[in-house]
Amino acid sequence: MIISVASGKGGTGKTTISVNMALALGAGVELLDCDVEEPNAHLFLKPVIERSERVEVPVPLVDLKKCTFCRKCSDICRFNALAVVGKKVLVFQELCHSCGGCMAVCPEGAITETGRELGTVNFGARGDIRFINGQLRVGEAMSPPLIKRVRAEADLQLITIIDAPPGTSCPVIAAMNGADFILMVTEPTPFGLHDLKLAVEAVRLLGIPCGLVINRADIGDRKVFDYAESEKLPVLLTIPFDRRIAVAYSQGKNIVDEFPEWRERFGDLFRKIEAIIKDRGEAVSCAK
């Protein structure tokens, strides 16, 4: 079972919800931090990292001894990652999308592939909770291939909780596509609502059921609640603003550890999600 925790707007509490739900469930859970640009889940889960792997994507390597400078490679490349200038072939690695078109089209077999470092994938655990995160190399622009790589490491026997990046563009899609449920974390403010609407549109594109957590539920206004009702999005948990929670968060402490009454609530949150996934027929789906 894969639950992806997303939001649209940043800073609404995706990591908080992901980590606390994982802690409330304990054994049989894995947490995948797919916010590879700014991964934070490890700061709160505090896993022991057992190993790290460098992740590369293939980029072309041109053998100038074989090259006839026919320009077929630069012509096929839609990303302008290759340029033939006189008796030279320039490869702009950072523009390459690793489609392999240049290698396939080269009539001389002059193109092979080498790697560009995307970042690292780290594997670890906290107690019975399995943990994996991706860390984008600083300066690297493309996060989706690294997100897909982190997801490829998921153990399908476990309950997989994915901490997704903010926004509504390709990195978020990479973190949500193929999930069984999207848990949207929002706050009842104009920014929270606006970005939630965009994120829900993205979820509908994917046809995955979804539900809401409304964090800091008593700040702002009631429009997020009205929106949830009109769109028939189930509100699965509300968390009031509590300065003590904000201060604990700032120190890297978790709600379920500091305020034990929340352990049960995060467990309930999961059971509600589980019920919706099991009973998709009756449940309200985002894919209407």
Binding site: E37, E38, L136, G139, M142, S143, P166, G167
Partner: peptide, 10 residues
């Protein structure tokens, strides 16, 4: 600006 350190931030 956007959040993160990826493509739109660069």
């Amino acid at each position: 600006g956007p959040p993160g350190i990826g493509c739109p931030v660069i």
